[in-house]
Amino acid sequence: MKDLGNQSAYWDGAGATKTFTHPVNLTWLTEVNRTARILDYGCGYGRVTAELSEHGFSDVSGADPSPTLIARARRLRPDLRFTVLSSPPELPSEPETFDVVLLFAVLTCIPDDDTQQALFTELNRLLTPGGLLYVSDMVLQDDERNRNRYATHANRFNTPYGVFTTDDGAVCRHHDISELHTLLSDFDLVDERPIKITTMNGHQSQAVQILARKR
């Protein structure tokens, strides 16, 4: 089984204390029925799950590989449904269970190409035909600090350019936009927008949000 990058120790430790900041563009969801079945995949402590619930979506659930983050989510919002992914990327749900899946700052936590592709295969299975996939993630940064981190990690570990290790031990990945488009090759692009975010470690960075529809 693939396990989303083998970083459970980090996300059950230092990662469980982080604050996540990718914003939800609610205008992208204005035509989604408030009773639609929505999955916040890689939900962390349930920030996006809770925000969607607060905006009237009544069938929202979250799933994450970290038991510690899921425990935090359940403490914050005991009224919502949260699942620990015991064998990621697989979710124990029937095919075509969800109308919308959100994938916020998840790919940056998966440095491996094969594991990313396995995740998208699973998301494709979970979504209904015509269902929406809303991705928000990090793109390659062009500042010297990040260029040095990318090059150092690639030279040492023979990883794709864009993979790096944070100061507190997480292995992360920033993506060329073409890499994200390739992962979405089984979907139709609906919209795309660049954004700026504050990372979980407090740095200002470039990111992108993509809305895609399952064929």
Rank of each mutant, 00 (worst) to 15 (best):
A36E: 04
T21V: 10
R34T: 08
V84R: 00
L26Q: 06
T30I: 12
G46S: 02
A63R: 00
A73C: 00
A50I: 05
I70D: 01
A71L: 11
R81H: 12
P23M: 08
V48K: 00
G13R: 10
V48H: 08
I70G: 06
Y10H: 09
E90L: 14
S87H: 15
R81W: 13
G46K: 03
L39K: 00
R34L: 06
A63Q: 05
S58W: 05
T68L: 05
D12I: 14
D99P: 02
S58R: 12
S86L: 13
E51L: 13
N33P: 09
R72K: 14
W28N: 10
T68N: 07
S53H: 10
G13W: 11
P95L: 07
L29T: 12
D12P: 10
R47V: 07
P65R: 01
S93Q: 14
T30D: 15
R37F: 08
S86W: 12
P95R: 08
W11T: 09
Y10E: 12
V84I: 10
A36R: 05
F20T: 07
K18S: 11
A14N: 15
E31N: 13
D12A: 05
F82I: 01
A73L: 06
V48D: 03
A50N: 02
V60S: 07
G42M: 04
Y45E: 15
G42E: 02
T49D: 00
F20I: 04
A14W: 12
Y10D: 11
A36Q: 05
L91F: 11
I38Q: 11
H55F: 13
C43H: 04
A36S: 10
T21P: 09
L26T: 06
I70C: 08
I38A: 00
I70V: 11
